[in-house]
Design a protein around this nucleic acid. Sequence first.
DNA 1: ATGTAC
Length: 470
Amino acid sequence: MEYAQEGPYRFRVEPQDGMRAPGVVFASEGLLRDAERSLEQVANVATLPGIVGASYAMPDIHWGYGFPIGGVAATDVADGGVISPGGVGFDISCGVRLLTADCGRRELAPAFQELMDGLGRAVPRGAGPGGVWKLSGPGELESVLEGGSRYAVEEGHGEERDVWRCEDGGAVADADVRQVGERARERGLAQVGSLGSGNHFLEVQRVAEVYDEPVAAAFGLARDQVCVMIHCGSRGLGHQICTDHVRVMDKAMPRYGVQVPDRQLACAPADSPEGRDYLGAMAAAANYGRANRQLLAQAARRVFHRAAGARLTLVYDVSHNLAKVETHTVDGARRRLCVHRKGATRAFPPGHTDLPEDLREAGQPVLIPGTMGTASYVLTGVAGGDAFHSTCHGAGRALSRHQAARTTGGKQLRARLEAEGIAVRPLSPRSLAEETPEAYKDVTAVVEASEGAGLCRKVARLVPLGVVKG
DNA sequence: ATGTAC
């Protein structure tokens, strides 16, 4: 695919072959070179009816289902704009939650191995059922789908601050549980408060560097601060919802006269029965994802309290796989847009009215999970941010799981990480080897490019002290 | 990512 550089960290694909908008990729030359194949997916997304502005991609762009991971596209709801499950991905509402601990690294040191053992026991992980919260039955699952982490807190699993420091106040209002199928419900019932596998993790981290003191202070972060970062999604429930609704839309597309260059871009007008049904089910999965992270945070709180007498305070919780109807100004006019962010993080700028008051001046915390054994980042939204206020979400895979597992053994990798001072509590040696740092791109390069492109600003770098992996 | 293939 042909492309041209139109600014530092900004590349453009001219409209061609049915594209209704250009493609715009924010990346360094190096990151783009590694992802050239995915430009085809950027171009495919640009053919979607109602697309506004451009088909965007973040610096961590890589190949995904229909949309590239790192893809951002907005469609005009009032103008036949479509919603595509492939623009959200299978792990609906995958995201990151960050908490600060009220203890220093040195105070924690004597109890650290005990703390990690406790986290290892308290965090359900890996494939299949298992979760911290045993729901009373299908009725309570509906409450989770409608109330998200707000419902979890109401039931005693958290504190008031957890609600307003979570994106959407812990729950979106437009969840429609009727659109969540029986299989999705079955899968979701026994997984609330579980990590899953792959790049998902719960880490104990240390603030290694602060880039912006005032904003870090507003987020409650200081150098050498101990933090807990949780990266996980909506488990089997979100996966099943995606599967079910892709099938529905695949069949519905001809009725709306929509043609897409890739069947994985199955979609329907956002303002159609099929579009509304998916958006309602997706919102239910979004709420489930927040409740999932809420329950894992509670589990971590219990372990921190028991092992170190320490308290954990929520900084923020934000998804990087979600579509939302948001109001944006386009060519001077306010328009309701369906913004797909797939492997891309919302990054609202200072002053945005959807931010809680105590974050209004600093901007939205943007949480970027690193790869095991590498850094994670806290960023903030900036005025004038492009791509409907979006930025990167992390580092994509560079090696397949199989390739990764061939480069090292799990025991060898664990020894290496422990020698670097990182405690590891893996589910199995094999799953650990698949997550070796060499299997991922450099998250620092992704963050530098995102900042260079004017999508966000760096606030702090966090490094792992201990990691719990599925 | 995912009861890692209906």
